[in-house]
Simulated assay, not measured.
Amino acid sequence: MPLGAVPLMPDAPAQVAGHIGIQWRMGRAFWGQGYASEAAYASLEYALQDRGIGRVVAVTTEGDTSSAKVLDKLGMDFTAEADGARRYAIDLSEYQS
């Protein structure tokens, strides 16, 4: 079973159209161990600091409190909700490494 993946995604899913999105997928055996937070933080830092991307967004489903906690830890702010999806974002000017 793979640990998971934490890619930067341009324009996918639809809720992040026009932005670079961050997402993660972890194998259930690895939930609750901090891997998602650590990997998402590294990806966010890479996008904002190393690549100079001005804004990064993320989408969770309504009720996904674990992912929402990760986004809060990253300093991302809730920006919108539509069709059961919640969008969060952070701008380069707001990011503190």
Rank of each mutant, 00 (worst) to 15 (best):
M1R: 13
M1W: 07
L3G: 12
G4Q: 02
A5N: 12
P7M: 13
L8Y: 09
L8C: 09
D11Q: 09
A12W: 15
P13F: 06
P13L: 07
P13T: 08
A17T: 07
A17E: 10
A17N: 00
G18F: 07
G18H: 07
G18T: 07
H19M: 00
H19E: 09
I20D: 02
I20L: 10
I20F: 09
G21E: 10
G21M: 03
G21W: 03
I22V: 14
Q23P: 00
R25W: 04
R25G: 03
G27M: 01
A29L: 09
A29V: 07
F30D: 02
W31C: 09
G32F: 00
Y35N: 06
A36V: 12
A36H: 05
E38P: 05
A40Y: 03
A42I: 07
A42S: 11
S43I: 01
S43A: 15
E45I: 00
Y46V: 02
Q49M: 13
D50K: 13
D50N: 11
D50V: 10
R51H: 01
G52M: 09
A58F: 01
V59T: 12
V59F: 03
T61H: 12
G63S: 03
S66T: 10
S66Q: 11
S66A: 15
S66Y: 00
S67R: 04
S67E: 02
K69Y: 03
L71F: 07
L71K: 04
D72Q: 13
D72I: 08
L74F: 02
G75C: 05
D77L: 10
T79A: 11
A80C: 01
A80Q: 06
E81H: 13
A85M: 13
R86V: 10
R87D: 01
R87G: 01
Y88V: 04
A89K: 05
A89G: 10
I90Q: 05
I90R: 04
I90H: 03
I90E: 03
D91C: 11
D91M: 10
S93V: 13
S93D: 14
E94Y: 00
Q96H: 13
Q96V: 13
